[in-house]
Amino acid sequence: MARVKLRVLEEYLQELDVFENPKISLEQYVTQPHIASHLLHVAQTTFSDVEGCSVADLGCGCGALTLGSAVLGAAYTVGFEIDPDAVKVFRKNAKKLGLSGQWSSTSHKRMGSEKNETVSPPEDENLDNSDENSEETSDDDSILLESEGEDCSLLTESAVDVVLCDVTSSEGLGSTNSRWYKSFDTVVMNPPFGTKNNHGADMAFLKSALRIARCAVYSLHKTSTRNYVLTKGREWGGKGTTAEVLAKLRFDLPKSYKFHNKKNVDVEVDFVRFDVSHVKEMECNFSNMSLNKR
């Protein structure tokens, strides 16, 4: 069961802004709302990996997967991103969906040109405790969605954070000694494909994801590298890791992302789920035994 219907989730994601000046070197393109909503909805309805869970989004960009997870009721969601400009768009999107706390903060200098700018009082919002049916905030942005007859307060009380960092750092998320090690139930991500000057980024993302996930990793990879991805994934996840291709998709990438100079910019992409819930911490983490708290 999911707390919002697939169609509604997709509509939420369609509201989100996209990269303003996509950086080719970071492979910045958004996960299309149609794909992002399906991915998250399957994670929730088939595997119960979102609602009430902690969810990490590696390379969160403008936030489609992070915010989508929050819409589906993730208890705590963290987006990790390397690009401060992308995070600006993320902030706008979080606000648009009506996230409270730091995301509704207007402490920042306000940009007059912004259509949906709101003048919300700086003091804490005092929303009542009932979750699903709490009142709408008096926020222009909520009204934007409200007009479609949906409950936009879904997001006001969810816990979302963003951290600016390089997710591929071997001393960071990619390390078994990191504090993040096995700290999230679920990872959802659309990593760079790791072509061009970004060689290997897809695999570095996957490695970090498998380090920090306790239950499952959902990821998108080029179908052409399927065997390699699945094999490496099972290896990095530790003994007991299973990998399953849940769907084969077609990405209609912007021209700038064409691969190996082929004219065709349609790329075949696997939607993969790695299950690490049966991996014992000890078996894949000898170097970390003293840090394991039980």
Partner: peptide, 29 residues
């Protein structure tokens, strides 16, 4: 969860001190 272990020459990098200029308290489910 955050550390500064990624810095060259830093061994543990934990815990990070906080110097807060603005703190906000909001309601979370």
């Amino acid at each position: 969860m955050l550390t500064s272990k990624c810095l060259k020459g830093v061994n543990v990098g934990y815990p990070l001190g906080i110097l807060a200029k603005d703190v906000k308290v909001s309601e979370v489910d």
